[in-house]
């Protein structure tokens, strides 16, 4: 108990220190933001966050997609140990529910994807939504993707990243890595976003499905 008390006190002190730090911190000067706004025209998209994510700091995004894929690999390394059989009975309510819900999900995902170019949104948000759809589908119809070959599944989940890297390699012909030619920038970004959405949705869904799918 004493240990806990001491810890709480220390945490409070620590927090106090951090508060003090924030209170005395000089106000943030958005130097980079002004740079971003200045170069926005060169990025091929009109939304600044998307421009940063997919053009100015595209490398971060590339690596971040890599992290997600890596997490999937990690999960597949440790997962074969504890899969269990999910509940598999057909059910009218869920069938109808999914039939209504799925198109809505897909539409909203597409909307979010396209909206990314001029307001907050983009591939990641869309893919999260799409992954939710896939998970619901998988839960209600557990047999659905069983026949899908593992190789194809892996390929689909890596496709977005592969395409992203491929674009990077292609841009090497003309300029630097991931330096989109200005005239193609918006198209390329959109293509990357689309494929990323697709792959990420599959990866995110696999995060879940890997834990629940049956062993066959």
């Amino acid at each position: 108990m004493l240990y806990k008390g001491v810890l709480w006190c220390m945490a409070a002190l620590f927090l106090g220190m951090l508060f003090f730090m924030v209170a005395t911190m000089p106000p943030f000067s958005p130097k980079l933001d002004t740079l971003v706004q200045a170069d926005l025209a060169m990025s091929g998209v009109s939304h600044d966050v998307t421009a940063v994510l997919l053009n100015f700091r595209a490398l971060d995004t590339l690596l971040e997609v890599g992290v997600v894929l890596l997490a999937l690999m990690g999960i597949q390394v440790v997962s074969p140990h504890f899969r269990y059989k999910p509940y598999t009975e057909a059910n009218t309510i869920t069938d109808i529910y999914i039939a209504i819900l799925l198109p809505v999900i897909i539409l909203s995902a597409l909307y979010l994807l396209l909206a990314g170019s001029y307001k907050s949104g983009g591939a990641f948000v869309a893919s999260a939504l799409l992954a939710g759809g896939i998970i619901i589908l998988k839960l209600t119809k557990p047999k659905l993707f069983v026949s899908l070959e593992k190789l194809h599944l892996r390929f689909l989940s890596a496709l977005g990243l592969l395409f992203f890297v491929g674009i990077g390699v292609l841009t090497l012909i003309e300029g630097l890595f991931l330096q989109y030619p200005l005239s193609y920038a918006s198209t390329l970004i959109l293509m990357i976003e689309t494929l990323l959405m697709f792959s990420l949705a599959i990866i995110l869904a696999s995060f879940f499905i890997n834990a629940v799918q049956d062993l066959e």
Binding site: L69, L151, L162, V169
Partner: peptide, 24 residues
């Protein structure tokens, strides 16, 4: 030598994907 630095980045990434997809 403009290729060397990007290849230090994309070669591992590419091979990570390839070895993952084509397990065989």
């Amino acid at each position: 030598m403009s290729l060397i630095i990007p290849s230090l980045l994309f070669i591992p990434l590419l091979f990570a994907i390839l070895t993952y997809v084509f397990q065989k």
